[in-house]
Simulated scan of single mutants.
Amino acid sequence: MILALACGVGVGGGLWLAWTGLRPPRPDLADLLAALSPSPAAPAAPAPRPGMEEGWAARLGRPLAVRLAPPRLLPATIRRDLTIVGRDPTGHLAEKITSGLVGLALPPLLTLVFAVAGIRLPFALPAALALAVAAALFLGPDLAVRTDATRKRRALRHAFAAFLDLTVIAMAGGAGLEQAVADAADTGGGEAFTLLRAVVDRAALTREPLWQPLADLGERYDVADIVQAAAVVQLAGGEGARVRVSLAAKADAIRLHGLADADADAAAATERMSLPVVVLTAGFLLMIAYPAVSRVLTGL
């Protein structure tokens, strides 16, 4: 029965691949229009790191992922997270496909091993287990990407708070807004400050207000604090005192937000640490109660 199911899945997958090869998906209209009228390159997204998505899972699933149009299949939130971590959507979808197929094949293989050992399992059990394991492994890469993107967002928020503090200090020393943000961006290092420095350079080269590329960076990385700071700069205009006070208040708010996130993470870690203790206590109580319960049941 398992062999017939595997053969049916293989034949269906081959027919579907042949059909997609004869009728490739149509390109997205937005991509075609963007190719006809390219806009200036935004400095927000980091370049994909070479070899980052070239694991064995991505290499095995890439021929199939290329035919599936990853921008359409992946949700918008996952695509945004992939942009933040600098990963290729095709490689990510290939890893998901390979992980799902591996999860789908593991329970039948274990069932075959048990059958060789003389243990017969009902057909419904390995089938349901195969679907559950395949779904879990298929969603695993999404969870990993979401975790990495959250970490990068927090790092960017932390760096942006320091950037605002440096800007306020420079403005208090008599520098203008443009000179202050340029000095603040040149002071820090790391990936987050590289993004902020690219935003400042873009504003200086294109002669556009600073708040516009800053808002684009916040929207691309889904960091509301950066978007709000850009709105503060836009509303304050050229009045240095108002900008300085507003940016200092925003830096304090970002630090309070970071402290709240740290407290929430500490509380969650504490709850996770209590789970093994609960399991050990339950096992200890079961070990103590089992002889008494067994004696009572045997006596009845």
Rank of each mutant, 00 (worst) to 15 (best):
A4Q: 02
G8P: 00
G8V: 02
V9S: 00
V9L: 04
G13M: 02
G14M: 01
L15F: 00
L15G: 00
L15Q: 00
A18V: 01
L22N: 00
P27F: 02
L29Q: 04
L33C: 03
S37F: 11
A45S: 12
A45F: 11
G51H: 05
M52S: 15
E54C: 08
A58M: 10
L60W: 12
R62N: 04
L73F: 01
L74T: 03
R80Y: 01
D81V: 01
T83M: 03
D88A: 14
P89H: 02
T90P: 06
T90M: 12
K96R: 11
S99I: 04
V102W: 06
L104Q: 06
A105C: 13
P108T: 08
L109R: 15
V113Y: 12
V116I: 14
A117H: 14
A117L: 15
L121R: 13
A127I: 11
L137G: 06
F138K: 06
L139S: 08
A149T: 02
A149V: 04
K152Y: 02
A155H: 08
A161D: 01
G176F: 07
V181T: 13
A182F: 03
A198F: 12
A204T: 09
W211T: 03
Q212M: 13
Q212G: 09
L214T: 06
L217T: 11
E219P: 08
V227H: 06
V232L: 14
A236Q: 08
A241Y: 07
A248W: 11
A251C: 09
D252V: 07
D252Y: 14
I254D: 08
H257T: 15
A260I: 11
D261R: 15
A264W: 15
A266L: 14
P276D: 07
F284N: 01
S294D: 05
R295A: 11
T298I: 03
